[in-house]
Design a binder for these strands. Structure first.
Lengths: 223, 223
DNA sequence: CGTTTAGTTGAACCTTATCAAGCCCTGTGG
DNA sequence: CCACAGGGCTTGATAAGGTTCAACTAAACG
């Protein structure tokens, strides 16, 4: 179902076959860890359904979500000996797992796959660079607005204007870990957006209606 | 001179030849812009000597350095139509420039090169993720200490302990833009490190002696 | 039901930004 | 040769944004 947006997108049938012969489908319940930081780096994967968070943390336990991956996204770090990041399912999640060794070998045998992975990695890098800008230079309101727009673009790629309902994939605490803020600040900023009529959202809910995409964009990227 | 650490590292002579036939060497004076954000994405490059900064900025002009690249590092974003980032020489810098089109073609013709670029891009992504952690969860002191260690590791890869002299590649203002702080905070944190005897450094100087790497590490990653 | 968990809200505090002044070095022009 | 302007850096005072701590609500769950 997610073929064309994922690694498999550009591939021939024989290549797909090579991949699927090493792949293993698995469902992870909410909160289950797929791979631990510090463990040997043994798997790569494609997200099939649900989502995963990729987290880094300081030795004293502060946590930061460095990536949020959705269906079609590639997870993992080929060629690295050890995992430096923890991968966790957020919400019930289906992954297509590839043991790293065989995956790297398959990569070597199928050019289109390697090319596609290179392009995906370049895109991830671009995304990471945007997040560096957010975390380094944006205030709380701007970060929250940017995040809502990110989720909106992910789930409604064709949306242009007018009200749109989005379902936040993560909790307030996870939003805080993603945006480099605290739970309290996230909560306050959301109520502020609600009071200002930019979004509509029941208290404590994960469901959120963007009333004015335009205003949200203005907050995310002021001019 | 920087062959083995750069893209060219894993290549055969015929591949090197292919690359060098499209390459153009150029020296950029301090502050000169190599590529502008928003312009068509026309070049990739390898840093030969000196260093470049890669910056992103908000529409209202706040600036963030998203990457700092040294000799051997690859600069650019193959496959992207437009540049979203600005690349600027910091200090007198030699680059080996590749027009993007021919570079992508060459990439398609030389597997080892593509493989190597994939690995480099993965490493860049890992670095970016570490910086997301820093910007999201570390305070000013920790960021400064992390940065000094980064520079130390770059310039003295074999250094383990004891005093070591390092030359900061960038100004205070650029450190601020790199670390998501202000000039004033950077300055204050450096004098603090100086007063605490962690580093020795003449006021306003770019040269800095790390007196205790151990203490610096303790500050960068508290436990 | 009582307990737990996620989220909201308020008050006090703290880190960092902002504003302002001054220093030092360099380069320039009288 | 000196006065002066400018840039890079430091330092101080003040302000603000976000964190921390704490209380509270509401839904979920045994």
């Amino acid at each position: 179902m997610i073929r064309d947006s994922s690694l498999c997108g550009a591939m021939q049938d024989n290549e797909l076959h090579a991949l699927s012969s090493i792949a293993r489908r698995k469902t992870f319940p909410t909160g289950q860890v797929v791979a631990w930081s510090g463990d040997p780096n043994s798997v790569c994967a494609n997200v099939v359904a649900g989502a995963v968070k990729v987290t880094a943390s300081t030795p004293d336990g502060r946590e930061q979500i460095v990536g949020l991956l959705y269906p079609g996204d590639f997870v993992g770090h080929p060629f690295a000996e050890d995992a430096t990041l923890t991968v966790t399912a957020v919400g019930e999640t289906d992954l297509c797992l590839f043991p790293r060794g065989p995956f790297e070998r398959t990569l070597g045998e199928h050019r289109t796959m390697e090319r596609r992975l290179l392009q995906q990695t370049m895109e991830s890098l671009g995304g990471a660079q945007q997040r560096i800008l957010s975390l380094g230079r944006k205030n709380a309101a701007e970060r929250i607005a940017s995040f809502l727009l990110e989720v909106l673009d992910r789930t409604r790629p064709d949306h242009e204007d007018g009200p749109a309902e989005i379902d936040l994939p993560i909790s307030r605490g996870e939003m805080a870990d993603y945006l480099g803020l605290t739970i309290e600040t996230v909560s306050r900023q959301l109520t502020r957006l609600r009071k200002d009529g930019v979004i509509a959202m029941a208290k404590g809910d994960r469901c959120c209606t963007v009333l004015s995409r335009e205003r949200l964009e203005l907050i995310a990227d002021p001019d």
